[in-house]
């Protein structure tokens, strides 16, 4: 087998394709689309906030949470009528601060986390049983849903969620799930990240939810270190080539700029 893998790249390919997706079934039609508006602050010293739209696509067996831009981009790339508006959407996708795709597999409460470094897609397997909710008695109505409050601590932040039993789906934005209803609002206690449901609908189109292929498995810690190294290295190479005279200064500026992005959604 080893010999064949080296000699015949095609066998190599089949070997990978058979195992990389964990044989998860592809679902023809996702049932429910929930769109959240996320407001976030990447620099803890600068109160200026950014926002973008993110989509939770819920199928009976798993869900996918991704930047709305990436979701729309994927669907238009595959649509036969690829046109300029598609190109515009693809352009905006690049602006997203959330490049990851988070799949929650309901069986076994697994999280399959995918993100890119350069052109390479990395895969991180996680367990979402670790999120223990504390359901509180506080209730309020949000956008016509009667919601109940719940709290948890995850990756260094205290989170407060409002979920509704009206929607019998135990899911929510980012890696959060496990409540007896869909999460309508979610924010951390420092107000650095806030997700609000702005749209909920049943999907009628036949867009496939696909799992990334050609992925390499790693851990979250390894992945974040590699991503910052990759960026540093890329910026360094380009700067050295283009402005050798200002290299030291520009790299210093870059380091400062990166240091200001000190408020990631997962603090530890």
């Amino acid at each position: 087998m080893t010999m064949k893998k080296i000699l015949v790249p095609f066998l190599f390919f089949h070997y990978y394709s058979a195992f990389s997706q964990d044989n998860l079934p592809l679902l023809e039609s996702p049932t429910i689309i929930a769109v959240y508006n996320v407001t976030y602050q990447q620099d803890s010293t600068n109160i200026g906030k950014k926002s973008e739209l993110m989509t939770l696509t819920i199928t009976p067996n798993y869900s996918l949470f991704e930047s709305n831009y990436s979701h729309l981009a994927d669907s238009v790339i595959k649509s036969p009528s690829f046109n300029q508006s598609s190109v515009n959407l693809l352009g905006t996708y690049l602006r997203s601060a959330f490049t990851q795709k988070i799949y929650k597999i309901y069986t076994g409460s697994r999280i399959e986390y995918y993100d890119k470094i350069g052109q390479k897609v990395f895969h991180i397997k996680q367990d979402n049983k670790s999120i223990k909710w504390n359901i509180l008695n506080e209730k309020k109505e949000i956008s016509g849903f009667s919601c109940q409050k719940a709290a948890t601590t995850y990756a260094g932040r205290n989170w407060e969620a409002w979920f509704t039993k009206d929607i019998p789906i135990s899911d929510g934005p980012y890696k959060f799930s496990g409540l007896p209803g869909l999460i309508i609002e979610l924010k951390d206690s420092r107000n650095s990240y806030a997700f609000e449901l702005i749209k909920l609908k049943r999907n009628t189109s036949t867009v496939k939810v696909e799992f990334p292929i050609n992925t390499t498995q790693t851990t979250y810690k390894e992945y974040t270190r590699a991503k910052s190294d990759w960026l540093y290295n890329g910026v360094s190479q380009v700067t050295r080539k283009n402005s050798p005279n200002n290299y030291a200064k520009e790299m210093e500026e870059y380091k400062q700029k990166q240091a200001r992005k000190n408020n990631p959604i997962e603090l530890k």
């Binding site: 739209l53 016509g144 849903f145 702005i198 749209k199 909920l200």
Partner: peptide
Amino acid sequence: LKEVTVKAP
């Protein structure tokens, strides 16, 4: 399903 559009994007 109670479909909603809470806010315009």
